[in-house]
Each structure stands twice: as structure tokens, then as C-alpha cells.
Simulated scan of single mutants.
Amino acid sequence: MTRFDGQPATEGLPLGAHPLFSSDDLDETRDCVARVYCDHRLETIGSGRLAARHNRLAGRSLSINVMTYGAKTLIAPGELERFYLFQVPIRGSASVANGPNRHEIGGGFGGVLNPDAQTCMIWSEDCVQVQVQIEKAALLDAARAEFGLPSGQTLHFDGANDMRGGEGRAFMSVLDFVMREAERGTNLVDGDTLLARQLERTLMIGVLQTQAHNLGPAVSGASGPVPRILRRAEEFMRENLQNPIMIEDIAQSAGTSVRTLQSMCRTRYGRAPMTVLRDLRLEQAWEDLSNPKLDTSVTTVAMALGFFHLGRFSEHYRRKFGCTPIETLRAAKRP
């Protein structure tokens, strides 16, 4: 049952004193979220029971939100258009496709959705996210003032960023402080006071400082700028997702040795280069299955991306996205 009556329908989650709604009805949940975000496609995946909850603290140019769906969920809003959305899971994980930017968040990593890119996400069954929704014009103003964004240039964020140390940890501490004060009855970002405006600005600058974007590096250790060698390697992998390539091919394309490439991948991603390639192919499989054509099947998608052992493909897919390939395809084809 949905609640808009101010009662703490979302006990146990941050901002529990500021409930927006709770619901176990898919259509009702979609409508409630659309009121404050945008129209979107919403589908559950698998047999999990929907138990959506959304707490919200609203300011002038941004809002702080805590959301969960309680079930494995596909969310496809297309383009957000009017706002950027920083999101970091405090439980569970999510797979994110935002235009060409595809990444995983969770385990201390967060990311930002760009408003001018097609977006599709899958949230794990236990996913609980803290989200900061920032009006596009306000964040662009902050980027121009603080980072020298040229007039007329677009601000684009990229990838998942580690929020567990350095600037990321400091930003999350500020965000946590604002949420804890809200639990005590004080909305520090509401109203036209100097403190509210300064706190909103601080949160916007925090997003700009901790997330990788086209204006410069994120100030956060391993979440800083991707080395040129790894950028070249990943570009080559993406260009050859449907081609049989070896680690020697990847290293040669990046202009480095196999040993150096292996070391850099493990330092940056915690994975071997061929595992990175496999994950990129799995992300493409998810994209293809989430946006099927009339003749799309799990077999054709897997084979096209070089997964010739369907059982192993399904297992890797399930471990990464928390559902099977056929569940993704069925949800995408559901009327």
C-alpha cells in the first residue's frame, strides 16, 4: 500500500522520517517514481516480490533519495533530460548502461547518470541506493564556476568511482550528515537560507570532485583518470566484442607488453584483461537482450559474442546480473 501521509513507511532505511511512498504494485510504483524523476519502463526480473520504498529529502536544486525495489528490477527511463543522478548502493549492486558508459556500482562504488544519454539499469534484489538528483542547469553552473566548464560545452560523467576513501569518503560523510540531521527533524537543504544554498553547492561540488568526467580527473585514487594504455585497450576490446581476440592482440593495440597490461588491469580493475573483456561482452549481451529484436534469442546473442558454451555463459551472466539471460529476454519482451 502506498503512503504519502508522512508516516515512516520505510523504517530501517536512511531518511525513514521522510517517506515518499511504499508499494508492492508495479504500476503504482512506476507512477510514484515518475512524479519526481521521469517516465520510465519498470519490470521485475525473476520470482522476487516487489516491495518498493522511496524516502526523499527535497531542496531547491537537488534532492536526496533512498530507494529500494525489493526485487530484481529492470529500470529503463531513456534520457533523464532535466537532471543528473548520482547513485551509490549502500546494499546490493546495480548494472548501469548510460549511453556508451556501462559500469557496475555497489561495494563502495557509485556513478552518475548523464541526462542526455539513453539509460537502462538492473538492480539486484537486495539493492538499496542513495541518490542525489541534481537539476542539470544547477550542476552546469557549479561546473562553470568551480571547474571552468566552457560555455556551451556539455558535462559528461564516466564510469564507476570508488567512494570509500579520500574525497569520496569525505563527500559521503557530508551526505550522511545531511541525512542524519533530517532524521532529527531538520532539512538543511530546504528553503532559501544561506546555509541551504551552501550545502547544496557543497554536495554538487562533491559530485564533481569525486566522479570522473570530461573536465578532468576525479580526485579519488584508483577512481582517477584511466591511464591511456587502458583506454586504448578497452577501446580495442569494445571494437572487437564479436571478434576472436587474444591478450597479445589487446596489448599490441594499447602499445604495451602483455605483462604491463596484466599489471595495470589488476591495479585498476582488480581483474585480468581477458576477464575485463568477458565482462564487456556480458554487458553487451545484457544490452542486446534488454532491447531485443523480433528474432533475438539467448543463443544468437551468446554465439555472436563468442560464448559457445551456453551453460557457462548463463552462469557468468547470472553471477554478474543476478538473473539468467532468458529472464532478461522475457522481461524485455513482456507487453
Rank of each mutant, 00 (worst) to 15 (best):
R60P: 01
L203F: 06
L280N: 04
L188I: 10
A34M: 07
V219P: 02
D158E: 11
C323G: 04
S173M: 14
S23C: 07
A304D: 11
L294E: 14
N243V: 15
Q209D: 06
N101R: 11
Y69R: 07
G270K: 00
S124P: 06
V174R: 03
D176E: 13
T267V: 12
N243D: 13
G148I: 15
T202D: 09
E43Q: 12
I247Y: 00
F313T: 03
I326G: 02
E125N: 04
R82D: 15
R144G: 15
L241I: 06
M264L: 15
L199F: 02
V88L: 11
A97E: 10
R49H: 09
H156N: 11
G166F: 01
I229Q: 05
R259T: 14
D176V: 07
L13S: 04
R35M: 08
A251H: 03
A302D: 04
A302T: 07
A145M: 13
I45C: 01
M204F: 00
E235S: 14
F236N: 03
Q284T: 14
L282M: 13
L194Q: 14
K293D: 13
D116V: 07
V36C: 01
T10W: 04
G6V: 11
I250Q: 01
K333W: 13
I229M: 13
G255R: 09
M246H: 09
I64D: 03
I105T: 02
V298H: 03
I75Q: 02
K320Y: 14
R53M: 10
V96W: 01
A285L: 05
G16N: 10
G107N: 07
D25K: 14
I105M: 03
T296Q: 02
F83V: 12
L230C: 13
G107P: 09
L329I: 11
T73L: 14
N243L: 06
P77V: 05
